[in-house]
Design a protein around this nucleic acid. Structure first.
Lengths: 124, 124
DNA sequence: AAAGAATTACGAAATACTTCGTAGTAAAAT
DNA sequence: ATTTTACTACGAAGTATTTCGTAATTCTTT
């Protein structure tokens, strides 16, 4: 599975949150935050289909695209790359940087503490 | 400060860990993991100097480059981008993904727990 | 001093990604 | 039935990045 480019990721985000969608819908969503021509979005989605990042249902004239690349996998690949490229592979350094700016709520911190507890229990 | 490209980041990594260096040294370091022509590295470092990512001392014939972009800042920018692009801005989701594959040592987990404690104390 | 090696500068090709215009066709509206 | 609108396909230009070859210069070795 090829790694998505930035534009491709933007499209995947829409497909992940909205489910299988037409180019029109994806383009509209993207245009909420950024002006992009319809054919630009179309073209990128066609390329994504070639790469296998998405699949499309061509039954009706308006093709419906769905994400093949799954959110968790793509996230994991991106975290791996970031770890490798900027944190010397140390996940704790990355975590410290992600937490180290006070934008994390109490609830989120609790979640993280719970995961750490699980990891510690599982390890022994 | 422009965001470094992948190749530029590779060079910055060498400068961060080795301190101010010649093109030759940077290229040698990079070639430990990946074959790259000397003039390729040179060219990119020249571009980086134009962009202000590095500065160079031209006193002697062999120019010495030093990183202007600081490690922490670049890391933070990259984490921000990743958060935005792939985790809907939720740092806890990113943290969970980074920790959720068991490659984190007990010591690292302890470090993270400590930071969480500090954050919790600071927040009330 | 001459030859060889190392270095910088720079242009240009190669690659990857993004953007858009145009043409063709199908569907919908009048 | 005709016009208008919506959609796909596709080529090509635009932009960013990477890679490399060549020329000019300086330093080092012989």
């Amino acid at each position: 599975m090829t790694k998505p480019t930035d534009s491709e990721l933007e499209i995947l985000r829409v497909l992940w949150s909205n489910g299988p969608s037409s180019v029109r819908l994806v383009n509209d969503k993207i245009n909420e935050s950024k002006e992009t021509g319809y054919t630009t979005t179309l073209k990128i989605m066609q390329i994504m289909a070639q790469k296998g990042l998405v699949e499309r249902d061509e039954t009706s004239r308006t093709h419906i695209y769905r994400a093949v690349a799954q959110k968790g996998q793509v996230q994991e690949a991106m975290v791996d790359k970031l770890l490798d490229m900027a944190f010397g592979g140390s996940s704790s350094q990355l975590v410290l940087s992600a937490l180290g700016r006070g934008k994390t709520s109490k609830e989120e911190l609790d979640q993280i503490k719970e995961l750490i507890k699980k990891l510690e229990d599982g390890d022994q």
